[in-house]
Design a protein around this nucleic acid. Structure first.
Lengths: 143, 143
DNA sequence: CTGAATCCAAATCGATACTG
DNA sequence: CAGTATCGATTTGGATTCAG
């Protein structure tokens, strides 16, 4: 049985790794978290302050109840979101970012700024790429 | 294909802002990119300079040929990686980060630093969460 | 050597129905 | 209101096979 950890070898010091080269490093875990479809949207939705479950469901367009619950649970488990149950009738549950959760704002912003700065270039590049790699056109008149 | 409505075009509103919870923004596109299993590792592997296809295959442990090709194509299409074919025998193909690709280093670093700074807290939180939500154990005894 | 194509298993996610 | 449970469609990624 071979090792199953993922390794990237570079001559210099790798960016996303600490003392070892495995891909299951802390940074990889974070990438897995924010890489899913909804985590970042939820964090953004909670930037302004706490919100109820149904409120998040309304504000985050397209998310299903299942995914909201599931993602919220993961965030709560990681200590990035705090869940507060108010035993009223009907029941009320408030979600809010923890202190740690709020600090995610910086890195997310860095990513946002990169995206904003490069969205034009990326879009143009995709355009050019798609033109250059267009599927074979049968109306080709060069024959 | 399917339901990917990542409209990177006419978003005149601020992107990862507290009032925008939509998934169709530039930042979302970036998150989709770096969120996949291999993109970041490839970017890291190309940090030092260009590399051949087979070299990347060797250095990024665990990646399959298919995924390397596929991810490289996406990166190339986005203008983050440049592909150079040397028509020799046997053929030689070199991959390298473009200028835009290299600028991804900053945001990636921010993420890494966040992860490093919080891995302890997150781990502890997960631990506590799992203890509190322990699977039903009948051998429970109070000490 | 580079890489496209195909088949298949597993993970992800959404819609729906049901509970307290 | 705030979930849980389940099923099926979709997506993802890996192994394998074939080709320039």
């Amino acid at each position: 049985m071979g090792r199953r950890h993922l390794v990237v070898t570079t001559s210099d010091r790798p960016v996303l790794h600490g003392t070892d080269y495995r891909a299951d490093c802390p940074a990889r875990h974070i990438l897995d978290r924010i890489g899913d479809r909804w985590t970042v949207l939820i964090v953004i939705a909670l930037w302004d302050g706490e919100a109820r479950f149904s409120e998040l469901l309304r504000r985050i367009e397209g998310i299903s109840q299942k995914m909201l619950t599931q993602t919220l649970r993961g965030l709560e488990r990681d200590g990035l979101v705090r869940r507060t149950v108010h035993p009223e009738v009907p029941i009320r549950v408030e979600y809010a970012l923890t202190e740690a959760g709020r600090t995610l704002r910086g890195p997310l912003r860095a990513l946002q700024e990169w995206a904003l700065a490069h969205v034009g270039d990326v879009s143009a590049s995709q355009d050019a790429y798609d033109r250059a790699h267009r599927p074979p056109d049968s109306t080709d008149r060069d024959g």
